[in-house]
Design a protein around this nucleic acid. Sequence first.
DNA 1: CAGTGGTCTAGACCACCAG
DNA 2: TGGTGGTCTAGACCACTGA
Lengths: 230, 230
Amino acid sequence: MSERNHHSIREAIRERIASGEWPPGSLMTREVGLAEEYQCSRTTVNRALQTLAEDGLIERKRRAGTRVKDLPTKRAQFDIPIIRHEVEATGRAYRAHVMSREVTAAPDFVAARLHLKTGAKVLRLQTVHLAAGHPHAFEDRWVNLDAAPGILDAPLDKVSANEWLLRQVPYSSGDVTFSASPAGAMEAAALEAREGDALFTIDRTTWNEGRYITTMKLYYRPGHKLQTRL
Amino acid sequence: MSERNHHSIREAIRERIASGEWPPGSLMTREVGLAEEYQCSRTTVNRALQTLAEDGLIERKRRAGTRVKDLPTKRAQFDIPIIRHEVEATGRAYRAHVMSREVTAAPDFVAARLHLKTGAKVLRLQTVHLAAGHPHAFEDRWVNLDAAPGILDAPLDKVSANEWLLRQVPYSSGDVTFSASPAGAMEAAALEAREGDALFTIDRTTWNEGRYITTMKLYYRPGHKLQTRL
DNA sequence: CAGTGGTCTAGACCACCAG
DNA sequence: TGGTGGTCTAGACCACTGA
């Protein structure tokens, strides 16, 4: 902590918490006090403390002051990458193979997720993502044709559906679910795995300003891990 | 966007991006320009844009200006809860059952994770977390006795090892890995599942200021999901 | 080298809420 | 009701880096 910017002050305070100077649940020095200690303006201390609050380490309340959280919630943050980038980052060549592509009536669970009427037309795409020629993940995707009609003309052999949709409807919201599923016949075949193998699975539904665009389930090859720092 | 604080300005800008006003990769209006548009100080616009950059939506470079990201990285954020809270949040009673507890020599992979010499003494704890009497998760934990000797006297039937460690060494760093694993004999028995069942698994190693404290593997009952918003 | 974002400052006013 | 954090402002200087 040689400098006096909000980064170094944040880290200095983080260390004081880690060292036990302010035990869990205790009241910390208030902003003006810290500003004096660090010989900086209150604005700078405020910035540092707001970041620590976002990180879930402390709790701040007007009038009540700033407290170290009692049982801090750990917050894990993952960047959900484009699969192509994920593969290329490991130095392997990426390729996608579209196994099946059909316009069909939405089954119930898809209609529910995309807020459509049962039977509405959707595009179903099943794709294997290959890393250096070996299966990396299997994607089972349903696209709402009302929200993204152009996808029928998209060159999905060249650009993956995900990337195409990202460019058309770039800044969408979504929800994501992580789980483990046993490989069914379809997934096993696509991933060159055995039926029943434990597959790490990501379910994802995407929308933009109230329009539901696509829902997909991504099955990773057996052994795949997703790692992060707390 | 009636008010003029950095929150509303951030959301206003987010909507302008979502609406396509600034397509992927394009250069956005610079800070002073936005400050004029929104009739506020540059500081406020800066705050709004920094938040959007943290969210992974835009990229900012001195001299080069602010651009909408080309292929935005989605960032998923999970709060990793105390298991007791996770269970109680669903309205079920929580109980932990310590199946096994022994001081033993660290096997290689544990020694490596905790940066110990092979054979150093560690505490191994195997615990089933129960929700309303049914197995919820199985925890296989190794604790570095040098870093947390007091744990030998802790009432682990009353306070889970996790919570005890959190209170002793509250503000630690860690890394976390999510994956899917097939249930082994031990996990199957503990979770009342079948061997080979696909289990959602969290691996976690925790340290504080260079001292490695504990590593654990948590196997959830079949069907467990972890959900979040993007 | 000049234009952009990154940051600090001092002062101000406000919202909230514990006492 | 007073003390705390939340936020804004105007101005300033600096760090970076593209043209």
